[in-house]
Design a protein around this nucleic acid. Structure first.
Lengths: 199, 199
DNA sequence: CCGGATACCGACCGACCGGTCGGTACGCAC
DNA sequence: GTGCGTACCGACCGGTCGGTCGGTATCCGG
């Protein structure tokens, strides 16, 4: 079996495991459940991964890579800070709501079960994202094309955490069949960030 | 033993269990752990509660009661809609950050493990809170003392979910020893909601 | 002082957990 | 065809889980 098919089968295991972890929770999903969903025995599953922790870690790492590729990289290519922030809000919401990428939801919800050493590595990548967003917020506030009478009272750091919370909490209440869908959500959250509830 | 001391011991069990559930997670905390923390045997613990699920449900119910008493009731007494929203933001943040009330964090994080019938009852109370906040948002936008040139683009529903996310996500990153503390956070989140990042 | 309810203990149960291991079927290189 | 590595199976391991149960100490009302 070639290198690529090895990678592919690992990827498929991760996708299936992420789906189950998101539906039932990490602790409530047994390795037997994951193996059965892949039509595999538990022993066969352990041929591909050393431990349940390793699977969770790889899912979270993959989630961070998705974020890098689909949010950060496209956003970095945009010159104007305000446009950059608008794009980040849109792309981040789209990634969180993408039905394909359940790794994201698992990463948002299941950080407790990871052993400390692995958790630190994930948290480190999360902090990088926060710092990027914090710097972007500062840039928008300083160099915006808007005219402001005074320095903004909201610190970039608080704004970054607020935006992150708004978006990362969506998975807790979002129903695709509900009346508040992704395409309504993106402009409304954008307006709220830029101008508050009176925007 | 009188009725009150029975209630008291149940309350103390719930407080201890909530602390452990918040620290280690619900699934990762065994009934033995809870019993040991109370200097009780597992059998003794089962004298007070029928099941682990019942403990989790009571913790969440208690969390909703705390929210009613410490956020909703004080807020309802305020006449002006804008003042009412400002108070809600402050009180809700304070409740989430209160080191005494770990039930809140458990309610925010551990809804998956609850059996469906119990989860429905909790979700119903959460929806009541959402509806209250949604109506308050609409009231603020309509009857505010501010002057606005046009109808707000942000719907009350989206604004309600955004505020909820901002606040309920705090427990994921907040460090009491960090540079962004509760007393900084409250005015900044308030300003952000009312006026965006340029406020 | 007695009797029943209350609070609690500790041994125990069956199920299931994450993980291991010996064995094997199969495909590909030579 | 032979040899070998990969993928996989299924039985099994020690341990832990939520929950049960028979028995007992304690306390309180009469």
């Amino acid at each position: 079996m070639t290198r690529e098919t090895v990678v592919d089968s690992r990827q498929e295991i991760l996708r299936t495991a992420a789906r189950l972890f998101q539906q039932r929770g990490y602790d409530a999903t047994s390795m037997n459940d994951v193996a059965a969903a892949l039509k595999l025995s538990k022993g066969g599953l352990y041929h591909h991964f050393q431990s349940k922790d390793e699977i969770l870690f790889e899912i979270m790492n993959h989630a961070m890579e998705i974020t890098d590729e689909r949010v950060l990289n496209p956003v970095r290519a945009i010159a104007d800070p305000e446009d950059r922030l608008r794009a980040l809000i849109r792309l981040h919401i789209e990634v969180v709501l993408s039905p394909r990428d359940r790794e994201i939801t698992v990463m948002l919800h299941e950080n407790h079960p990871l052993p400390p050493s692995l958790r630190k590595r994930i948290n480190s990548r999360k902090k990088d994202y926060i710092h990027f967003l914090e710097n972007l917020m500062a840039e928008v506030q300083n160099k915006s094309r808007h005219a402001h009478r005074a320095k903004a009272k909201v610190s970039p750091r608080a704004a970054a955490f607020a935006l992150l919370g708004m978006i990362n909490w969506i998975y807790q209440w979002y129903k695709p069949e509900g009346d508040l869908q992704a395409q309504n959500l993106i402009p409304q959250f954008t307006d709220l960030i830029f101008g508050g509830i009176f925007a």
